[in-house]
């Protein structure tokens, strides 16, 4: 199947389930492991990731296809993408600070983390490699962010439960057990494969 003909909704769905950016591509692991200790802050970070990835994916698409390709500057894509992401995050941070203090307090502290979150940059790189169209890249950005948020919410829920109820081997406590849980979640997500397949 030609990728250009795939409906954006299918891309969105695939990005959440079968091609989950965290569970199959391992992107955004650092903040995933660091922040997933409690549900509230992981939901905040998840929301911030959805927001940033949804907007930076189409912006990066425009930068790549309308700016870099016409001038044959494709090799500059890494620098271009990272500047777009950093600038976007910076601007959004300022806007949120002005508009709503409440939103700034819940979302704002996570925004600087996102500049170096590889899920966002990975999103931009994947949409170039997979040759998505503009609409597809919006759907992909939204789906990838949602999938990431879903995974971190699931892990945070399980971890906060485990803290109260179970005893973990001391050597495996913290990052180790978080990785094991993530592995099990990833196995569960393999159950989705076969529904949609986008490569």
């Amino acid at each position: 199947m030609d990728i250009q003909n795939v409906h954006p909704f299918v891309i969105f769905f695939a990005a959440i389930t079968t091609n989950n950016i965290l569970l199959t591509n391992f992107l955004g692991m650092c903040s995933f492991l660091a922040v997933s200790k409690d549900l509230k802050s992981s939901l905040g970070l998840g929301a911030a990731v959805i927001f940033v990835s949804t907007f930076t994916a189409p912006i990066n698409w425009l930068v790549y296809h309308k700016l870099l390709v016409p001038y044959e500057l494709e090799y500059l894509q890494y620098i271009a993408f990272i500047i777009v992401i950093a600038a976007f995050v910076q601007i959004i941070e300022m806007v949120i600070e002005r508009v709503s203090t409440l939103l700034y307090l819940t979302l704002g502290i996570f925004l600087p983390l996102i500049t170096v979150n590889c899920a966002i940059l990975g999103c931009a790189l994947f949409l170039v490699i997979r040759q998505y169209t503009f609409m597809q890249s919006i759907a992909y950005g939204l789906g990838a962010g949602t999938g990431w948020a879903l995974a971190i919410a699931a892990l945070a829920g399980i971890r906060s439960r485990m803290e109260k109820k179970s005893k973990v081997i001391p050597e495996l406590d913290g990052a180790g057990i978080a990785l094991v849980i993530t592995g099990i979640i990833a196995m569960a997500f393999i159950g989705f494969s076969g529904i949609v397949r986008i490569n």
């Binding site: 569970l23 199959t24 391992f26 081997i169 001391p170 050597e171 495996l172 990052a175 180790g176 057990i177 990785l179 094991v180 993530t182 592995g183 099990i184 990833a186 196995m187 393999i190």
Partner: peptide, 22 residues
Amino acid sequence: VIAPSGFFALATYIWIVRALKS
């Protein structure tokens, strides 16, 4: 070679190294 084993392999590795350290 698929995703979940990556998580398990790294967790096991961390476990071994931390056990050796302690």
